[in-house]
Amino acid sequence: MENSILIKTVDLTKVYPMGGQSITALDSVSLTFRKGEFAGLVGPSGSGKTTLLNILGSLDAPTKGSAEVLGEKVETLSHKKAAALRNRHIGFIFQTFNLLPVYTAYENVEFPLLLLGLPPAARKKAVMDALDWVHLADRAKSRPNQLSGGQCQRVAIARAVVKKPSLILADEPTANLDAENSHHILHTMEDINRELRSTFIFATHDEKVIGHLRRKIVLVDGKVAKDEVIKAA
């Protein structure tokens, strides 16, 4: 159970049509992720990191090949099933647009639980716990425009982990943060990884993030150029 396979991709390929031509964003990517990993996709801009994360998160479908995520084949999932998979098991952290602007930090974190249909008392406890993890319990009532970039990112992390998902996909989570905040949220994520045994997969070029990774996968032109374990669990 400890080392069970969470994700397995085989020859995963994504081609975007671009006018008459086409762009191969992912080229025969075969990767396996196990439960509890703290892994990162690194590589130059345009190398396919976001594309891969989106497919793993069932937000996008591959052109060729397969991606099995938590026992579901992403390429054959219906909209409904994909939504259910994300809803129950996957937490997202995005680089830019992260929070629903009209809602408070509390409400943003509460949203996935509303979708899951949790009763109010359970929701309240889970939301406050999650905000505690990111040290923002005192800002629960603030709207995104009243929070700093780093604080918004931390709220997004709280929202990703609030339902204690098996898989957390984070696309450049530190891009807008200074060194101190970056380390702070990385520590938070390491804690969550340890406590909840959630699998984290990052997409990043940030050296600070790379320093925290235990496994580094280098993508170049949509291909896996290197896949190495750099730190023991």
């Binding site: 998160g57 909209h79 409904k80 939504a83 994300r86 809803n87 129950r88 992260n98 929202r159």
Partner: peptide
């Protein structure tokens, strides 16, 4: 669209 995208990513159904 951004809001809808985000809600879908969080796991809301398109319908």
């Amino acid at each position: 669209h951004g809001e809808y995208g985000l809600r879908l990513a969080i796991g809301e159904d398109k319908g």
